[in-house]
């Protein structure tokens, strides 16, 4: 069903007369999935909103360059991932002279976040995820929360299944270690 819809949208996207309408459909179809993908990385709603807007505007401006070689969803996920990583890098650069590192800053934002309904255990899990390197965080979120297959992740992140499995395995071990230590203390 989603494939048929994607195919229809794709044929409308290449036509200059219908591309704006088709893009509007595309936004409505993927905005939630992409928002959560970004939000789990940047944590704050405001930042996720900014990154999501940039993602869709980049996609709109790059529409002519999309040749349909990959699925639209993969293409959008790729843009969203790149935009998220760029956002975090910029944040790190801006904060280079600051007291906290970016992870500390993100943690502070998370604790002050209005739009967080998690319980204590879920907050601890988010803190544990924040101790991971960015790429591992990305892989862990995509597998653990979004339940994406390694093959889907391979297309989006352009990383081999083997490397993704290893990355996820390391992430799980680190998180478990963090949570076990937290439980003891």
């Amino acid at each position: 069903m989603a494939d048929i819809e994607e195919h229809n949208i794709l044929s409308q996207l290449v036509n200059p007369k219908t591309n704006a309408q088709a893009f509007s459909k595309l936004v409505r179809l993927y905005q939630e999935r992409l928002y959560w993908h970004i939000r789990k990385m940047v944590l704050s709603h405001e930042d996720a909103n900014d990154v999501l807007q940039n993602t869709f505007m980049k996609a709109w401006n790059g529409l002519a360059g999309f040749r349909g070689e990959s699925q639209i969803s993969t293409w959008l996920y790729r843009i969203a991932t790149n935009e998220t990583l760029t956002f975090l890098t910029n944040k790190r650069m801006r904060n280079i002279s600051g007291i906290d590192d970016v992870e500390g800053l993100l943690l502070g934002q998370l604790q002050a976040e209005t739009y967080f309904s998690g319980n204590e255990a879920e907050m601890k899990l988010q803190k544990a995820i924040l101790t991971l390197p960015e790429k591992q965080r990305l892989v862990f979120n995509m597998k653990y929360f979004d339940d994406l297959t390694y093959e889907e992740m391979e297309n989006i992140l352009e990383t081999s299944v083997g490397a993704l499995k290893a990355s996820y395995h390391h992430a799980v071990k680190k998180i478990e270690k963090y949570l076990t230590e937290e439980k003891v203390t």
Binding site: Y35, W36, Y115, G118, A121, K124, K183
Partner: peptide, 13 residues
Amino acid sequence: ILKETGNRNPFTV
């Protein structure tokens, strides 16, 4: 531990 925590999305909009 991770199974107990679950994979519910704790964020809202």
